[in-house]
């Protein structure tokens, strides 16, 4: 049985801030899909005659220390940064969801055992854990996505478990169990669909967290290959030029901040929309 078709208290688009944040995310996704190939300048093309130019016509967001166009790097960077975050989110779901669902819907010893492991992982500083994973897998965008995904998975599992536990205590689950429904079916057919909205809200919030950690690893040079326009890597490239070329790091920083903020707001908005009267 699915119960969330019930009327939401505040539909998503009736919350102006959430709507704005959602619009930013949608625009960003469209932008990264459509815009990069249409740009006139190659994000890797270094022009020695155009080094450290402030924003002006020609280079709307200025050029970096190697004479590359910041705007085209920013636009291409969205593709790498968001792509990595999406891949990481998939990893989080693949790892966190089954564990949390099993713990929450089976309870008992399975719950106790898996949650102790999750607790242990949660106690470990996330960025450090991610760096350990990168150290094992090697650097690169995919390893970073996996690493960030793995570090986000424990929190995800915990969330799934708590939602599943709550749903498990509802009368219709008792009803299903009393007619002899097997646990796997209960978990997949009754608990998961009802947990979905909350999980989507949580995943959206986690997206912001994932973006920050992914960018941090790229900032440290563990992610995308050298020269890749990625927001975290761009921040690192610009940090030696804060005095003479602040635009190199300001714009990717701004893009990252706005995107993380938007993800967080949309997550909150979904949660708000799901609250029943």
């Amino acid at each position: 049985m699915i119960e969330w078709t019930a009327r939401a208290r505040r539909p998503l688009l009736r919350q102006p801030v959430t709507a704005l944040a959602l619009a930013w995310l949608v625009l960003l996704v469209l932008e990264t899909l459509v815009l990069p190939p249409l740009l006139p300048t190659d994000p890797r093309f270094a022009d020695p005659a155009q080094v450290l130019l402030p924003p002006a016509a020609g280079h709307v967001l200025g050029t970096d220390a190697l004479g590359r166009d910041v705007l085209s790097r920013l636009v291409w960077g969205g593709r790498w940064t968001l792509g990595m975050a999406m891949a990481a989110l998939v990893v989080t779901f693949v790892l966190g969801l089954p564990v949390g669902l099993a713990a929450g819907s089976l309870g008992g010893r399975v719950d106790a055992l898996t949650m102790r492991v999750v607790d242990a992982l949660l106690a470990f500083p996330a960025l450090l854990l991610a760096m350990v994973v990168v150290a094992i897998l090697g650097t690169g965008l995919l390893p970073v996505a996996v690493a960030v995904g793995i570090t986000a998975a424990p929190a995800h599992a915990r969330m799934v478990r708590s939602v599943a536990l709550e749903i498990r205590s509802r009368p219709y689950i008792d009803a299903a169990r009393s007619v002899g429904c097997p646990p796997l079916r209960i978990a997949l057919r009754h608990i998961l669909p009802n947990a979905a909205p909350v999980l989507i809200a949580f995943a959206t919030t986690q997206l912001g967290w994932i973006l920050i950690n992914g960018a941090a690893l790229n900032f440290l040079g563990l992610g995308a290959p050298l020269g890749t326009p990625e927001w975290g890597a761009m921040l690192a490239e610009g940090r030696g030029y804060l005095r003479d070329g602040p635009w190199i790091s300001v714009f990717p920083g701004l893009a990252l901040t706005l995107t993380v903020l938007a993800a967080h707001l949309v997550g909150n908005g979904i949660e708000e929309a799901l609250k029943r009267d």
């Binding site: 890797r44 093309f45 270094a46 020695p48 220390a65 190697l66 650097t139 040079g221 290959p225 050298l226 020269g227």
Partner: peptide, 27 residues
């Protein structure tokens, strides 16, 4: 990672792209 080698590497890659050479670099 030091002595501006990553910067030099990226500039070489950009210049060599003009003459049809692709570069894969790693720090």
């Amino acid at each position: 990672g030091w002595g501006y080698m990553p910067e030099v590497g990226q500039l070489l890659a950009s210049q060599w792209a003009e003459i049809g050479i692709a570069v894969q670099s790693e720090v």
